[in-house]
Amino acid sequence: MNKKSVIPWIVRAAALAAMLYLWTIMPTIMSGAVSLGLLWGIMVLGVFITYRVLDIADLTVEGTIVLGASVAARMITAGYSPFLATFAAFFAGLLAGLLTGVLHTKLRIPALLSGILTLTALYSINLRVMGRPNTPLLPFKVPSVFTPFERFNLPLNIPALIVGVACLVVIVALLYWFFGTELGSAIRATGNNPNMVRAQGINTTSMIILGLMLSNGLVGFAGALIAQHQTFADITMGIGSIVIGLASLIIGEVLFGTKSFKNTLVSVILGAVVYRVIIALVIKMGLAANDLKLFVAATVTVALTLPIMQSYARTIIKSLRRPEKGGE
């Protein structure tokens, strides 16, 4: 956080302009990518809380997103309101975060391993919740949070777009408020310097658990929405989600900056959208779906190393420009 964006504003504007242009030439692909990006953006906010605010790489996400989807799918097919089901997914996510938090803080298991333990446990739990590896949520058979939009006869993906934007506006406002409160400040400080936080009388254990819960709650919520949008919940849908989350986070931060907390929240969501657009484009350009994960891993590596590459480039350019001073 709080690094200056390495990309000038003109590149940001160009990226947004390019997306608008693409929308006009292939609206279906773009609306699909953007709406998916917005829904995954909710998950990216969760990843942001752990990876950036708490400074923990939390792999629980891979299980929590499926947990959210499973809980929502099970409840919707059992006849509960899809809205209630989506909120239930949020609470299920809180519990997953609680488990990882307790493993990490109270039982002193390294964060990475705690996440892996929870996500492994969640695999079985998710199968139990759904009762099978895949639950279809076909729009004409069961309702979803998008059902109320049916009567307006909107084009494909537009309901998801509306729901995504509405959820994000509320969540960003809540997160901005929460991290400005005494409690939220204490969580931010814990990720920053736990020594200082303890010296100021704050229990870092509680702060870490709280942060992990909030993060996984958001991921569970996103999982429920994604499942309803793609019309199924699947036991494998979480695979690679942490990499997707980090890719979106880093793309967003690099492209749109991290000047302030507010700015960063919006940046990481835009990052999720840009990520989905890139994926849609490479598939359109003929990348085989099976090669996608390789492509994603490569993208994340490039995005992660962009700042350091830029500093190398700067050093090289400097030495080329001022060769007479270089010898001193």
Binding site: F178, G180, T181, E182, L183, G184, S185, A186, A189, M196, V197, Q200, G201, I202
Partner: peptide
């Protein structure tokens, strides 16, 4: 100011009131 505000609340419960 955020650092000072955290120190100002030493010994108090951290609530949902504004941090500063």
């Amino acid at each position: 100011e955020e650092n000072l505000a955290i120190a100002k609340r030493r010994g108090q419960r951290r609530t949902l009131k504004w941090g500063v």
